[in-house]
Nucleic acid binder design. Structure first.
Lengths: 184, 184
DNA sequence: GTCTATATTCCGATAGAC
DNA sequence: GTCTATCGGAATATAGAC
């Protein structure tokens, strides 16, 4: 991949998180990179193509991160995940999943499929982590692991949303309480 | 308020939830109501004015609902709140708070203030409900009521987001587990 | 007061030069 | 691979008719 294309995707990722898919334009990308908007269209004919690429990057990134964590105890793996969200919180970003879920009804079919894939992957990993963690007595919770994974994922997702509105202490409260609940 | 103005606000509320603030246009309102887009501008000079009105309506609605619930046991009040979210889930809507928090960085200062007010009001009510509920032994949870309120609010908010992406069973899983956790 | 016709700006996208 | 030029359309918004 060319350097320009890489920069476009990186910037699009940021804009998608901060302003939402319908809240940014090609101009928001071409201006900072000192390009013309047509240059973006060369790399990504339609805006939806750019959207798909950003999600693909996130899928790859997530797979790499979780693989790097896999030898850690499950509670520490979870802390790592929370750390990723904390980083986004500091950058005033929200998670890609939350941003794209918000705009879901306005997305192209191709983008919707990718968003669904991202959601399934995150939940699958989280479910496995919780299940293993309970088995190894590192994590404690009631009910199905898949239900608990849904609870935790939605906590983290909306913690970034609410942090933007009410301040970063929202993220701290939620992430702290989250781990307390799981450590029993 | 005129009947037309009322219909505009009602439709804007729906569009805001389904498509997001940057995902709908005045045309999406004027066409179904058989008006010209300029007619909307008469009632709401700028799009942000319409946004503020929609949030004000929600604030009033929420105040009325919680007042009507106030004589119920706290666990039933909570069920009522979940019922409101369930209704939105069925209509493929997401909660106003979630939608506006997503687009927060692109909103006008006036709209941001209103969104903040909405968030504070919901959290204040939920915190009070949890506190009273614990005191009356109708609800059981660890930690501060305000922290627990954040957890529950984010669960409900993102449950609607994820339901759109992965299907309505997401909402069912989360809302069921939520009440189980609180009933001890 | 309420709405129509119209202005203006901007967006996503295409064609073709370099 | 990036640029110039430009299109068609849709967006928000204004000015003025009824």
């Amino acid at each position: 991949m060319s350097e320009t294309k890489d920069k476009i995707v990186e910037l699009a990722d940021h804009l998608l998180r901060v302003k939402g898919f319908n809240g940014f334009s090609y101009k928001d990308i071409s201006d900072p990179l000192s390009l013309k908007n047509a240059a973006i269209h060369y790399h990504f004919p339609a805006k939806a193509d750019l959207g798909v690429e950003v999600i693909d990057h996130e899928l790859t990134k997530f797979a790499g991160q979780t693989k790097r964590w896999q030898s850690l105890p499950e509670d520490e793996q979870l802390e790592k995940l929370i750390g990723v969200f904390r980083k986004h919180c500091q950058d005033k970003n929200i998670c890609l999943m939350g941003s794209l879920a918000s705009d879901f009804e306005t997305l192209s079919p191709e983008m919707r499929v990718k968003v669904q894939e991202l959601g399934k992957r995150i939940l699958a990993w989280l479910t496995g982590c919780l299940e293993q963690g309970r088995h190894n007595k590192r994590l404690h919770f009631k009910g199905e692991a898949s239900d608990r994974a849904l609870m935790i994922m939605t906590n983290l997702q909306s913690s970034l949303l609410m942090s933007r509105v009410l301040g970063p202490q929202v993220f701290n409260s939620i992430s702290t309480q989250l781990m307390k609940d799981l450590k029993k």
